[in-house]
């Protein structure tokens, strides 16, 4: 029974990891850019929600809604004024710039909020639970998992059903030819990063509601997100959800055996998949 319980907890936790990963996956898919500050941007988002909650006296969900356009603008500007300038054949400059950004964000947060851990409060929702047969499932983990599915559905609608999404895919395939269609690849990149930041604020909301956070936890979130993307296979958001679930299940089951093995078990699951299926479980057909 404990095993079944950890399995379900792990699957639900996978939803959170998929939310961490969706933005990373979107940006990588379109511009082959790995944003090493992705985890720190999620933590930054959690602090932003915290700030809005106390400033405007909102509940956390409303605060995330208010933060979303701000995050879009932030992502758009980050891409337009910084990352677009270093994107190119050489992978080194964007990696080093986002690594620098990661260090800057962590320390700005540390300077403004101190190292004390914080939490977002979702009121009674946090403790509410639902009995499914013999298993008690928390409403909050369930809500996170459903949100992850909704986010992936919406992103896939945008990518596969809109003119913007066509431009995303065309730019990802071949930016020069896309520009011959009147697509401005750099604008597409800016919009994509803006969109990724909206996913980041959703991830930030649930990160803060589900557990404590402090300025130093960003890199670990980046690593979980990265593992989920690689396990799933580049370019597939459903694969990313599957990857998140695998990490989540490995962590909760590892923790039932020995609490110290929680994080390590997730990483080992990642290595095993990388060993057996280096292109991930649901890779894109072409590339």
């Amino acid at each position: 029974m404990i095993f079944l319980d950890s399995l379900i907890q792990g699957i639900l936790l996978g939803g959170l990891y998929a939310l961490f990963a969706a933005g990373l996956s979107l940006v990588f898919g379109i511009m082959r850019l790995v944003n090493l500050a992705h985890g720190d941007l999620i933590v930054f988002g959690a602090y932003l929600i915290l700030l809005l909650v106390s400033l405007l006296n909102l509940n956390v969900f409303a605060a995330a809604l208010v933060a979303a356009p701000f995050m879009f603008a932030l992502g758009w500007m980050l891409q337009k004024f910084v990352l677009n300038r270093v994107l190119g054949d050489d992978i080194l400059p964007p990696l080093l710039v986002t690594f620098g950004l990661s260090i800057v964000i962590q320390n700005v947060l540390l300077e403004t909020w101190s190292a004390d851990s914080k939490r977002l409060s979702a009121g009674t929702l946090e403790t509410a639970s639902l009995a499914i047969g013999p298993i008690n499932v928390g409403i909050m983990p369930l809500l996170i998992f459903v949100s992850a599915i909704v986010v992936i559905l919406v992103l896939n609608q945008i990518i596969y059903r809109t003119s913007l999404g066509r431009a995303f895919r065309a730019t990802s395939d071949d930016p020069v030819t896309a520009s011959l269609m009147g697509v401005k690849p750099k604008n597409i990149f800016s919009v994509a990063t803006g969109l990724a930041m909206i996913v980041v604020i959703i991830a930030a909301l649930y990160l803060g509601v589900r557990s404590n956070f402090d300025p130093s936890i960003g890199p670990a979130r980046l690593i979980y997100a990265f593992e989920a993307v690689i396990i799933g296979g580049l370019g597939s958001l459903w694969g990313t959800l599957l990857g998140g679930i695998i990490i989540g299940v490995a962590q909760t089951i590892g923790a039932t055996i020995n609490p110290e093995w929680q994080i390590l078990s997730g990483h080992i699951a990642f290595l095993l998949v990388l060993l057996v299926r280096p292109r991930g479980l649901l890779p894109r057909a072409f590339d």
């Binding site: 003119s163 066509r166 431009a167 895919r169 065309a170 990802s172 071949d174 269609m181 009147g182 072409f286």
Partner: peptide, 18 residues
């Protein structure tokens, strides 16, 4: 230079993008 991740119709549609 067709876009491999776009269908035939999507390849045509993106021609009218700009």
């Amino acid at each position: 230079r067709l876009f491999p991740s776009l269908s035939v119709e999507e390849n045509l549609e993106i021609g009218a993008y700009g």
